[in-house]
């Protein structure tokens, strides 16, 4: 793994579960922070997409969450740690098209079983851990030049 890298930036953002109107505020914020840091546009977009899909998951399924944004030389890391129902079967949840979404989520244009796949596809490194009844922990890393 080599020596620990110095943080160029780090900030934590809370997300409130169930608040559909607020979904996207954190990723919009992350996007503008990364832009200001001079991160290339395509990396900023990937980071915004993964954090946005994660936010949608939090408002849809969790009570609350914290998003940790960390920028180190060579990478943008986004961690989303929620308190909520958790995921009983991660393999199934990672299958494109598998969804437990209700009508409210679908009306917003989500809930088609693509969120976690999008998150994985836009991340260079993706980790997911979940405990039923406790919550889910996502960790996404996007490499920067």
């Amino acid at each position: 793994m080599g020596e620990p890298k110095p943080n160029l930036y780090s900030e934590s953002f809370p997300i409130e579960g169930g608040n559909f109107n607020s979904a996207g505020i954190v990723s919009t914020g992350i996007k503008s922070i990364l832009k200001k840091l001079g991160i290339p546009g395509d990396i900023v977009r990937k980071a915004a997409i993964v954090s946005y899909e994660a936010e949608i998951n939090v408002v849809s399924y969790a009570k609350k969450a914290v998003v940790n944004l960390t920028v180190v030389p060579g990478a943008v890391c986004i961690e989303v740690i929620d308190e909520g129902q958790g995921i009983p079967n991660i393999d199934l949840a990672m299958q494109e098209g598998y969804s437990t979404a209700d009508q409210k989520i679908r009306e917003m244009g989500f809930g088609a079983g693509m969120g976690l796949c999008n998150i994985r596809n836009y991340s260079d490194d993706f980790h997911i851990e979940s405990e039923v009844g406790k919550g889910t922990h996502l960790k996404m890393t996007i490499q920067t030049p």
């Binding site: 559909f20 109107n21 979904a23 996207g24 990723s27 919009t28 996007k31 546009g41 395509d42 977009r45 915004a48 997409i49 946005y52 949608i56 009306e107 917003m108 244009g109 989500f110």
Partner: peptide
């Protein structure tokens, strides 16, 4: 990025999505 988004959805998440993707 830079594309037009054609959609029939009108909620705020359409705007968030558009913003995220430029």
């Amino acid at each position: 990025a830079g594309s037009l988004l054609l959609t029939g959805l009108t909620n705020t998440q359409v705007i968030r999505t558009a913003n995220v993707l430029d």
